[in-house]
Structure formats: structure tokens, C-alpha cells
């Protein structure tokens, strides 16, 4: 998902836990929220920083593939909608960094780790947006997949994270719809437009399935995160739900999902579908995806070119404060 393959620390059996750890786990089991000043195991804190940080980085890097088309949006209204949407992503990054900051790490530290390649962001944003239909596909599929993960996270155990997710989910509700609205227009448009829509689905289908991460039903990290309620569902559960939700939406558009193995399975009450190429996923995570280099370059450039602005405004504020104190 936006936070993929987060390594979690901890994973102790109940009888190995200290009394504090046991009391902490009991609070989570009772459905209580953990707040910033509460005692928490170091592993919980570290895992959360990693997960929320990765989630925040994904929002911010996620501005780039869509931002790519703001200056080429085909109508004034589409331009405004897309700009508002990409602006929301920046806001979501900001909310999430704020949540991470309550755990004792600063936004600049997290940014530093992203730019140094020490923290990751979602694999999906390393794929290019080549046509206007890709903007539709990103909203429909990528935001659709993200929402699937974010809705349950509104109940996550860490208070600031849960509250950020509530705000994000509320704002995201228009994102997937705007993507689908573009897809509808394209799918019902000229033959060129319909071809673009199908091509966008072809290219974004498997990368969207990868967003949920590889199967984690046997992962100890996931088990620990689920015990802490910072992960609510398994990757496979969410992926299945996503496929089942998306198939009829594609059918309505008259578009074909690029998977010959796709079929309804009456017995399980869901679709059977082909797995994405997981070797590709690992390559993208390693930095070898189609746009990894460009995305990182853009973020590094924004950070470095912005340094004089951040320093200039801070210096001015300090001068003002000093003058005020001297009065």
C-alpha cells in the first residue's frame, strides 16, 4: 500500500513481555487509543515512524506523476479539479508528517531519510503518466487501492495517525470519483480516447495490485503490526477486495482488465486473478523502476532549491522576534 513491506520490531510472545508491555498490549486489545505521551514499546514507536513516514513520503512523491499533467489538462475545469486534488496530496503528506512528529522525529529528519534513500515510498509512483487517461486511471485505481487501505486505518491504535486518516479519508472521497469521471469521458469518447483509456488500464492494473504488497499471510512483521493494530487487514484480503470492487467498474466502462486468468469464483465469492510480476515489484522497490530516478531528482531539487527560502524566512522571523524583545 502507501506503506509497503514495513518491517516491524517487537514480536514477543505474551509470556516474554514485561509487565509494561503486557499492559500496553491489553490497552490495544481493549480498543483504547495510544496517545503521544503514553508509554509505548520502542518497537511500536519505531515501526510507526517507519510506516507513517513512508505513507507521508508516498503522498508527497505521489504529487509528481499527476502534477505532470496539470499544465496539460484539457479544460479549465479539469485543470482546477486536478490541481485541487494534487494539492490535497500535499496536505495529506503534511498531516501524516505531523502525526509522525508526535513520535519524536522531525519532518526535516524524515525528509532527509527519504532523500538519502533510507526510507521508501509506494512503488506505484515510479510508473509514468503518459497520457491524459493515465490521470483517470491513477484516480480510479491508485486512489481506489489507497482508500481500501486507509479506511480501516481510521481505527488504528495510534491516536494522531488515526485522526490524520479520518481527515484524509474525508478529503479523499472525491479523488477516486474524479479519476473515474475522466475514465468515463474517455471510454465514451472518440476511438483515440477509448484506446487511451484501455491502454491506461493495461499499464496501471498490475502496478495497482502491487500496491498492496506481496502476500503477507506468513509474515511475522505483519502479525506484529496487526497485534498492535497499526495494520488492520492482510495484503491479500485488501487485494481481493480491490479486484472484486474494480471488475464491475471496468465492465461499466466497457474496458477489459488485462488478465486472461480473471474469473468469478462462486465458491469463494470473489474473483480469481493473476498475480503481478513480483520480481518487477522488487526491482522497483530497489530503485530500478521506470521513474525512480526522476521522482527522487525532483524531490531533491525542490528541497535544495528551497533551502534559501526556508532559511530566509526563518532569519527574518528571528530578526523580528529580536526587535520585538528589545522594545
Amino acid at each position: 500500500m502507501y506503506a509497503q513491506m514495513v518491517t516491524s520490531e517487537g514480536g514477543k510472545a505474551r509470556d516474554e513481555m514485561t509487565p509494561e508491555e503486557r499492559a500496553f498490549q491489553d490497552r490495544i486489545d481493549r480498543g483504547e487509543r495510544i496517545e503521544p505521551k503514553d508509554w509505548m514499546p520502542e518497537g511500536y514507536r519505531k515501526t510507526l515512524i517507519r510506516q507513517i513516514g513512508q505513507h507521508a513520503h508516498s503522498e508527497v512523491v505521489g504529487q509528481l506523476p499527476e502534477g505532470n499533467w496539470i499544465t496539460r489538462a484539457p479544460t479549465l475545469e479539469r485543470k482546477q479539479i486536478l490541481l485541487a486534488k494534487v494539492q490535497d496530496e500535499a496536505g495529506h503528506g503534511l498531516y501524516l508528517y505531523s502525526a509522525a512528529e508526535t513520535l519524536g522525529v522531525s519532518r526535516d529528519e524524515l525528509t532527509g531519510m527519504l532523500l538519502a534513500g533510507k526510507m521508501k515510498y509506494s512503488s506505484i509512483f515510479n510508473y509514468p503518466t503518459l497520457t491524459w487517461a493515465d490521470i483517470g486511471a491513477v484516480g480510479w485505481l491508485v486512489d481506489g487501492a489507497a482508500i481500501m487501505n486507509q479506511v480501516p486505518l481510521q481505527r488504528t491504535s495510534y491516536g494522531p495517525y488515526a485522526r490524520a486518516m479520518v481527515r484524509i479519508c474525508k478529503e479523499e472521497s472525491f479523488h477516486q470519483r474524479q479519476g473515474y469521471s475522466i475514465m468515463m469521458t474517455m471510454a465514451r469518447g472518440t476511438p483515440d480516447q477509448k484506446a487511451m483509456a484501455q491502454d491506461a488500464l493495461n499499464r496501471f492494473w498490475y502496478p495497482s495490485l502491487m500496491m498492496f504488497g506481496p502476500s503477507d499471510k506468513d509474515s511475522v512483521h505483519s502479525a506484529q503490526s496487526m497485534a498492535w493494530k497499526i495494520k488492520i487487514n492482510t495484503n491479500d484480503e485488501l487485494r481481493q477486495k480491490f479486484v472484486d470492487q474494480t471488475v464491475p467498474q471496468a465492465r461499466f466502462l466497457g474496458l477489459e482488465i488485462p488478465d486472461p486468468g480473471l474469473a468469478w469464483n462462486e465458491e469463494k465469492g470473489g474473483h480469481d486473478f493473476s498475480q503481478p510480476d513480483w520480481s518487477e515489484f522488487y526491482e522497483v522497490l530497489k530503485g530500478n523502476g521506470p521513474c525512480n530516478a526522476e521522482r527522487m531528482e525532483a524531490r531533491i531539487e525542490a528541497w535544495e532549491d528551497g533551502a534559501w527560502v526556508r532559511e530566509g524566512l526563518m532569519a527574518h522571523a528571528e530578526k523580528r522576534a529580536a526587535a520585538h524583545a528589545a522594545e
Partner: peptide, 20 residues
């Protein structure tokens, strides 16, 4: 309380809050 943000001064914090 709705959240937090970074700003160099109170004046800019209010402007940023308005925008965010």
C-alpha cells in the same frame, strides 16, 4: 484543534493554517 504545521512566525503560521 485540527492539526499542526511548520512556519517561521506566528503571522505565517496563520496564513499557512488558512491555506492548509
Amino acid at each position: 484543534h485540527v492539526g499542526s504545521l511548520h512556519a517561521p512566525s506566528a503571522e505565517m503560521a496563520i496564513q499557512n493554517a488558512r491555506d492548509v
